[in-house]
Design a protein around this nucleic acid. Structure first.
Length: 252
DNA sequence: AAGAATCTCAACCGCCTGGTA
DNA sequence: CTACCAGGCGGTTGAGATTCT
């Protein structure tokens, strides 16, 4: 039997007061992070240790950026989500000053809808069958320009992350998976430089150290791409296209 | 102006992992 | 090997804010 992380009868819940925030800040400034279980008592807080940790990480940490997400941050989240799935901590790790909670919330409240408006299934980043041909609202057209900046992405996604949403419930998710995926992202330094594969303006993220794994399209799909590109060029407007597999291809 | 509907996001919950006794 | 602890993660909730009717 697991003990609860704290005695819930003696802890406050809900929104943090300014006094509580200040106590937590003062304590961590003096003693540093860590030992969250004993921190509340030591800091004079009637809070669960987990609650303190979350409050610090998601809100009080001095290096947090906060505020609206920039367009390049949005793009990066979308790219990383295509690569990693709902691995918010990994995604947030590539966004300096952003937390997993913040990224997750932003995804759920903005980016998911944005992709859906563009006819893209936010779960697998493929064109959905509904809404494919006509993003109608003015938002959608603005969205279309922003997805332009995504460039031509061919994301090689780790196999486990395909079922990332299910992995947890099915008990398949392991720390090893996390680690291997993390290292996969990190190892992309050697595999390829995503920036070099993407369009110019999406490369303007000097501090983000974006090193996604981008694979080149197969010859088959490349031939397909060229065909389609001709088709698109003859048709003027921009068009998104997805090849089979989690591959996003963008034409202008 | 007011109530309803929708959106946002801080916070909580339960589960998992690695470390350790 | 087992049990426990601490820390971390992703999913979900719900209060407050905002927009719509």
């Amino acid at each position: 039997m697991r003990r609860p992380c704290c005695d819930k009868q003696d802890t406050n819940k809900g929104a943090w007061s300014k006094q509580e925030d200040q106590k937590l800040i003062d304590y961590i400034r003096k003693n540093g992070e860590g030992c969250w279980r004993t921190l509340p008592q030591a800091a004079g807080l009637l809070r669960c240790g987990k609650s303190c940790r979350l409050r610090w990480i998601n809100y009080l940490r001095p290096d947090l950026k906060r505020g609206n997400f920039a367009e390049d941050e949005e793009d990066l989240i979308i790219k990383l989500h295509a690569l990693l799935g709902n691995r918010w901590s990994l995604i947030a790790g590539r966004l300096p000053g952003r937390t997993d909670n913040e990224v997750k919330n932003y995804w759920n409240s903005h980016l998911r809808r944005k992709l859906m408006n563009m006819g893209i299934d936010p779960n697998n980043h493929r064109l959905s069958h509904i809404n494919v041909s006509r993003p109608q609202t003015s938002n959608a057209s603005a969205d279309a320009t922003s997805i332009h900046r995504l460039g031509h992405i061919n994301v090689s996604r780790p196999q486990t992350s395909n079922a990332s949403a299910d992995a947890k419930s099915s008990g398949l998710k392991t720390q090893a998976n996390h680690q291997s995926e993390k290292s996969q992202v990190e190892n992309c330094d050697q595999v390829s430089d995503a920036g070099s594969c993407l369009e110019d303006d999406s490369c303007g993220l000097p501090d983000l150290n974006l090193d996604l794994m981008i694979t080149m399209p197969s010859l088959n799909s490349l031939a397909n791409v060229e065909e389609k590109q001709k088709l698109v060029e003859s048709n003027t407007s921009s068009q998104l296209e997805f090849t089979h597999s989690p591959t996003l291809v963008l034409f202008r």
